[in-house]
Every structure is written in C-alpha cells, then in structure tokens.
C-alpha cells in the first residue's frame, strides 16, 4: 500500500503547488520580479462616496510614479477617520466633517482635512414611485417617513403602497449629513427604517431592486432606477442637480474630504496635490461631483474614464 499510494499523493501535491506557481508567474512581471521591486505604499480607505475619485486618480498617479503604489479600500467615512486616527491609513476618505468626539478621540493624531470636491446628498426613491407622481417632498415629510409617522406612499401623494425606508450604518458620512439636515442631529435615530445598508453601491442596489423604497444617496449615484426627488421649501422645489448644488441652492451639500494625520508629507503630499491640481480635479468631475477649482478640459487627459 505505501509505495503506490504515496507516489500518487506526492504527484497530486506537486501538481497543486506547480499550478499555483505557474499562475503567479503569469501575472505581469511575476511574483519574483514584483517582490524584488522597491516601492512606497499609500494606504487609503473610507467613504464610498469619495472612493471613485481617489481610485481613478490613484490609477493615473501610479502610471506616472511607478515607485508609488496606492491601495484603496471602502468601508465608510467612519472607517476612514478611525483608520487615519489610529495610523493604520495614510489617507482617510470622508464625505462628512470630523465630529468633535472623533477629534478628541484621536487628538494625538492631529487630524487634518483637505477638501477635494463638493457633493450633495439627495433623497432618492425607486423609479416606480417617482413615475407615479412623487416628485418632491418637504423636509417635514421626509423626517416623518424616517420617524415612522408616515408609512404609506399615499400619505404623500403616491400609490397605496408601504414605504420601504432605507437607513445607513451609523458612521456613514451620507447619513450624518442627511440626518443633520432632517433633524439637526447627525446621530439622530430612524425608527421608521426597514433596512440598513452600508456602501452607496449597496443602497443603490436595494432601492433599484425595490419598487417602493426611499433612501439617501450622493447625487453621483442617481440613475434611471434610483431617482433623486426635489426638496420642497415653501412653494419652491429644489431639484438635486449639480447646477443647484453649485449655485448653493440645494440644502444638503457637503465637502468631500481627505483626512491625514497632521499636514500631508512626502508622497502623500504629492498625491494630495495631484488631486487638487487641474488634472486631478478632472476625476472629481468625471465621478459626478463638483470640483473645487475648474478642471482641465477632459480631452486633454489621456485615459480618463467615463462613468
């Protein structure tokens, strides 16, 4: 038994290891080459709202500075701020301001924010609801929906259908900004909520999959299935458009921040400056947000993506 059997076994194991090795070598350059290279890593994570900008910019930045490598991770604004505060990250992404609580908690890290763009949080609904006539809601109405006082779309002029209220995880930047607008408190509770989601992607998908959902979403994530409705103030309705945000009319606007421990230094500074440059600002616009300075014409930047 042993001789024949062990030959079979060794053959099998060798195949597995060999397969792994071959696969790893196929990648551009291969592992051995890659491990030999010398490079600096910038670790970035946080808000899924800011992530598309930074991820695209990082791709471009790395093709120019081959010695720098940038890893970008999702998680939410809370993750970005916490990670930077505890020095696990070089740059945190935040779609909200740092709370005073967080400032005290990470006092030793002297958190510093750099604004790279502007965005707005829209109240969004499933397209079926929009099509059936709910085009705008007042702050009071949205607030009552989140408090669970309004539970059916017919109470706000829609079809006779229960409202699926979608909340976000408590540390998310979008939620802070939205709750601050609705209730004046960024950590207000939402007893009317039915689902809690995390990233923008997840919330967008849940609203699109449903035909009677309401949620909060950065305007860059609005599409045909997930429609941003207007905010009614008195007699006037303010639609969530880039134009209204740019003009300062839309009430739920916010800064998109990079968080660093102290002033950015070294390669991190280079990268932050790149994002603030005319060329870097293109990625803010391409991702659907408002640049803080006029970007270079898109045609002049090679390899920029369209969304």
């Amino acid at each position: 038994m042993p001789a024949r059997f062990s030959r079979k076994v060794i053959l099998g194991l060798a195949l597995v290891l060999f397969g792994t090795g071959v696969f790893l070598q196929i990648g551009p350059g291969g592992v051995t080459h890659a491990l030999a290279q010398d490079s600096t890593v910038i670790r970035i994570a946080g808000s899924t709202t800011v992530l598309p900008i930074v991820s695209r910019a990082a791709e471009q930045f790395q093709t120019r500075n081959s010695s720098v490598r940038i890893t970008v991770n999702a998680g939410g604004s809370g993750v970005g701020i916490h990670g930077t505060g505890t020095r696990r990250l070089d740059v945190g992404l935040a779609s909200r301001e740092i709370t005073s609580k967080e400032k005290n908690r990470y006092a030793s890290s002297r958190l510093n924010t750099t604004v790279i763009g502007r965005d707005a949080v829209a109240c969004v609904v499933s397209s079926e609801i929009f099509d059936s006539g709910v085009r705008s809601l007042s702050r009071q109405q949205i607030g009552d929906i989140y408090l669970g006082k309004i539970t059916n779309w017919k109470q706000v002029g829609g079809p006779d259908r229960k409202i699926i209220v979608i909340d976000k995880e408590a540390h998310r930047g979008t939620r802070h900004v939205f709750m601050k607008y609705l209730f004046g408190k960024s950590n207000a509770r939402a007893p009317g909520a039915r689902l809690v989601t995390g990233s923008n992607n997840e919330e967008q998908a849940k609203i699109a999959q449903s035909d009677s959902a309401i949620g909060m979403l950065s305007i860059a994530w609005i599409n045909n299935d997930v429609v941003g409705i207007g905010i009614r103030e008195g007699h006037q309705v303010i639609k969530p458009t880039l134009k209204n945000v740019r003009a300062g009319r839309f009430p739920i606007a916010r800064n998109l921040n990079l968080v660093t421990a102290g002033q950015p230094r070294g390669v991190v500074k280079q990268f932050v400056n790149y994002l603030l440059s005319k060329e870097g600002q293109v990625f803010v616009e391409v991702s659907g947000y408002i640049p803080i300075r006029s970007p270079q014409l898109m045609s002049q930047v090679a390899g920029s993506h369209s969304k």
Binding site: L24, V41, A45, R69, T71, A74, A205
Partner: peptide
C-alpha cells in the same frame, strides 16, 4: 483592499481576493 491592489511587494500590504471581490460586486 478594494482597488489598486496587485501582488503584494512587502509583508504588510493588503491583497484582493475572489471572495471579497464577489462580496463587493454582489452588493
């Protein structure tokens, strides 16, 4: 990590995996 990751070039770098890739796309 989510993006910008290739092969790790030092001990302390994140990788990206099939499992977490599916997790992100599934959402």
């Amino acid at each position: 990590a989510f993006s910008g990751v290739r092969l790790p070039q030092s001990w302390t770098e994140p990788v990206t995996t099939l499992q977490t890739h599916i997790l992100v796309l599934a959402q």
